[in-house]
Computed example of a mutant assay.
Amino acid sequence: MGAGSLPALAAPGGKKVTVITGSPHRRGTSFLLADEFIRGVREQGAEVFRFDSAFRRVTACSGCDRCGLGAAPCVYRDDMFELNPHLLESDLIVFCTPLYYYGFSAQLKLVIDRFYAINTQFHHGRRAVLLATAWNSQDWTFESLVSHYKTLCRYMDWEDAGMVLGYGCGTRSSIEASDYPKEAYELGQKVRIS
C-alpha cells in the first residue's frame, strides 16, 4: 500500500447502523430519541455503532484538500479515524441532534463537514434517518434543518429512511410525556437496514 493510500474497506451491507449524536447533554431530549431508535433497530438484529460527537475529539475541516476527497487520509488525527470505518461499512446513517439556531448542532456539523475526507467512498447505496428535538413548536421550526438534511441526502445519493421531529421538547420531562420516543423506537423497528 502506498504512502497516501487508504486500506480497502468493506462495502455497505449487512445490518450495520451508525448513529451520530450531536448533543452535549447525555440526559437530553435528543439522546432519548437516539436511545429509543437504537433499541428498536437492535430488535431487528442490527449491529449499531454510536458516536456521541459532543464527547469526542473532532477537529473542524480546514478545507486544505490534502485528503483529495478520500484519496489520502485526513491530516487531522482525531476520533474521526474511529468513526470513518463504521460509516463506510454501514448502510444506515442516523443523525440525531438538538435544534441549534434552526440547524444541526455545531458538534454534529463538525462530523458532517469531515465527511469530505471519505467523500468519494461514501456516496451512494446508503439510507439515512434524522432524529431531532427543539424547544420551539411552531410549524416552521424544523424547516431549515430538514432542508439541510434532505440536501445532504441528495448530494450523497442516499435515501431518506425517515424522520422523528420532536416539536416543543425543550426538557427531558416534556419529551418523556410525548409520543416522540415511541415514534423513534417504532422507526428503529421498521426501518429497512439491509
Rank of each mutant, 00 (worst) to 15 (best):
L33E: 03
G162W: 09
T141S: 12
F95H: 11
V19G: 06
V17H: 03
F37D: 01
R154V: 00
V48W: 12
G28K: 03
Q189D: 01
I20H: 07
D65V: 10
E186A: 11
L130M: 02
F142Q: 00
P12S: 06
Y167E: 06
A10R: 13
K150D: 14
H148T: 14
A161C: 06
E43H: 08
S178E: 06
L69C: 05
I193A: 09
L69Q: 12
R27W: 07
P181G: 10
W135S: 07
R42E: 15
V48S: 12
G70L: 09
H123A: 08
E89Y: 02
N84P: 00
H124M: 04
A60C: 02
C96E: 13
R127A: 09
F37T: 02
W158Y: 15
K182R: 15
P181Y: 08
R192A: 13
N84Q: 13
Y185D: 04
S194G: 10
D113K: 01
R26H: 13
G45K: 04
Y185Q: 09
S174K: 15
D79M: 01
Y101A: 11
T133P: 03
G14Y: 04
E183Y: 08
S174M: 14
R172K: 14
T141D: 07
V75E: 14
A128K: 04
K109G: 10
P181M: 08
F142W: 01
L87M: 11
G170Q: 10
L88H: 13
S137N: 14
R126L: 06
G40V: 01
V129L: 07
R154A: 14
Q121A: 14
A132Q: 08
V146Q: 12
G14L: 04
K150F: 00
F81T: 12
Y101M: 14
A177D: 13
T141Q: 03
A8G: 06
V41I: 11
D35G: 02
A161F: 04
S90N: 04
E186K: 14
Y102R: 11
D79Y: 03
Q121C: 01
P24M: 06
T29C: 15
N119F: 13
F95T: 04
C67S: 11
E186M: 11
D139H: 08
G40Y: 08
Y116W: 15
E43L: 13
G63D: 05
A177H: 04
L92K: 13
H25W: 13
E82Y: 03
A46L: 01
F95V: 06
A177W: 05
M1H: 12
M1A: 14
A8V: 12
S194D: 14
R77D: 14
E43A: 15
I118M: 09
D139G: 05
F49Q: 02
M163Q: 15
S30D: 00
A54F: 00
F142R: 01
Y116K: 08
Y185M: 09
E43N: 10
G4A: 12
H123Q: 15
A10E: 14
F142G: 02
A60W: 11
F55L: 01
C169P: 07
L110V: 07
D157W: 02
S90M: 07
R66F: 08
K182E: 15
S173C: 04
C96Y: 02
R154M: 09
F81H: 12
I193Q: 09
G22K: 05
Y101L: 11
